[in-house]
Every structure is written in C-alpha cells, then in structure tokens.
C-alpha cells in the first residue's frame, strides 16, 4: 500500500514545529510498511489536490500568511475545495485552518477572503490565547482526549452546520467563548493545536492514516504499534495542562 501526502507551503507555513505532523504521519506509515511520499507544493504551483491522499497545511506568521494568501485562494482554493468534498484527508493547523474558512476580519474590520471551503469565520483579536490545551473529541473513530499548545489571537466561529473537533477541557479553543476547538468536516480537520499535534496524539495520527487507506483501498485495519512513549507524553501533557490552569 502507498499514500501520497501533499505538504502545502512547507517553508512558509511552518510555525511552531508544524512539520512534526508530517514527520509523525510518515513515520507511522513507514513503521507499518505503508509507502508514503511527501510532495511539497508552494507559491505558484498549479496542482490537482484531489489526487493526493492526505493534504497538510501548517500555520504561519502574519508576514508569511499575507504572502501565501492570494496564491492559496486563486491557485489552490478551488482544487482544495474539491479535494475536501471528495473525501480527501486534510489536516490544517492554526493559520492554515483559518484560511479554509470564509473570511478573516481584521481589527480594522477589513475582510480578507478565505477559500470558503468550510463555513467558518475568524475575527482578529487584541489578546493572544496562549497555553496548553486538552480537548475531548466525539468525532466518530476519534473519541478521547487530544492535547496540544495554542498560540493565536484570531477567534474562530463555526457555522451552524459544522461540528467542532472537540470540546475544550483546558485552554481557550476556537474563540475562548463557546468551549469548542477546531473543526471536523468529512475527512477534513482544522485546529489551533500545535505541540506538534500528531506525535503526542497517535490515535489522531492513526485515524488520519486509516481514513486515507479507507478512501484509497477500502481498507480499515491497520497494524497496531507500540505507543508507550507517545501515550506517556500524551498523559504528561494532560497533567501539565491541568497544573497550569
């Protein structure tokens, strides 16, 4: 079996170690004998995103996010929308998550268009939401805790038809108000969690791999791995988040 992963703007959208997610996905495939190819796609590349099994986009600083904004909208947007609707596995972190939405409203009430793949809107805030996060997910196949670290001033609100990735147990989440964190739509997941996210949440990583294999091969079983270290890090993160709050 083999999977192809598209890493969008890896050199620009890699804030707070987001490439750790790609490392986690590729290692956990390799350890199971699943061949995985990573293809970076960046500014200027015209690309058919539905041909990939997994698409990853990380967060960026303001400067980088401004740089990719129009390329993302005009060169990748339509294709990514199609990929999302066709059940492609997509993981978007922080800035990448915001860009999937309809718009980003700056403090000056200026509206920056997203690609509108998901019905969510982000408002710039004047206060940064920083700290360890624990959420509880009810997403089918992914029930349980997810841990990470958030650092954002944008406040994201989901449209009525969308479900969050999870409920906030510790931290701020999407907007610090409604107790939701992230988004889950078909096989697409958006979240504010860095950490890096996937290495400490092996269940989440495996869920993504399983979804990708299911779409491509109709396969649902994957070989279990020894996750003692990952689970210990996960438990520690929950403990530390508890102490902090």
């Amino acid at each position: 079996m083999e999977l192809t992963l598209c890493h969008l703007y890896p050199e620009l959208m890699n804030l707070y170690g987001d490439r750790g997610n790609v490392i986690a996905l590729s290692r956990r495939c390799q350890w199971r004998g699943i061949r995985i190819t990573i293809e970076p796609r960046t500014l200027g590349d015209e690309v058919d995103l539905s041909s990939y099994d997994i698409i990853f986009i990380g967060g960026g600083q303001d400067r980088e996010q401004r740089l990719i904004c129009s390329d993302f909208r005009f060169k990748k947007g339509a294709s990514l929308k199609e990929a999302i609707e066709s059940g492609c596995v997509v993981l978007a972190i922080c800035g990448g998550y915001q860009l999937l939405g309809r718009a980003y409203i700056t403090l000056e009430k200026e509206e920056i268009q997203g690609i509108g793949a998901l019905d969510l809107v982000t408002y710039a805030g004047d206060r940064r939401m920083i700290g360890n996060v624990v959420i509880e997910s009810r997403v089918d196949g992914l029930t349980g805790t997810i841990v990470g670290f958030e650092n954002h001033s944008g406040r994201t609100y989901l449209g009525d038809g969308l479900s969050p990735l999870g409920k906030v147990l510790r931290g701020y989440g999407n907007n610090g108000e409604d107790g939701t964190e992230g988004v889950s739509y078909r096989n697409t997941f958006g979240t504010y969690l860095h950490g890096s996210l996937l290495p400490k949440n092996p269940t989440f990583t495996d869920h993504l791999i399983r979804l990708a294999l299911l779409r491509k091969y109709g396969e649902t079983e994957i070989t279990p791995l020894d996750d003692a270290l990952e689970q210990a890090a996960h438990r520690e993160a929950i403990r530390i988040a508890g102490e902090v709050s």
Binding site: N14, Y16, G17, D18, G20, I130, N132, F149, N151, I240
Partner: peptide
Amino acid sequence: NDRIADGKDVSWLWD
C-alpha cells in the same frame, strides 16, 4: 523544561 524562560511551548523541538 517548559518554564517561562524556556518558552512554554515545546513545539520547537520539531524544528
């Protein structure tokens, strides 16, 4: 460590 002087976020280890 992840005390304030170290940076609370250890994501950087992945960089």
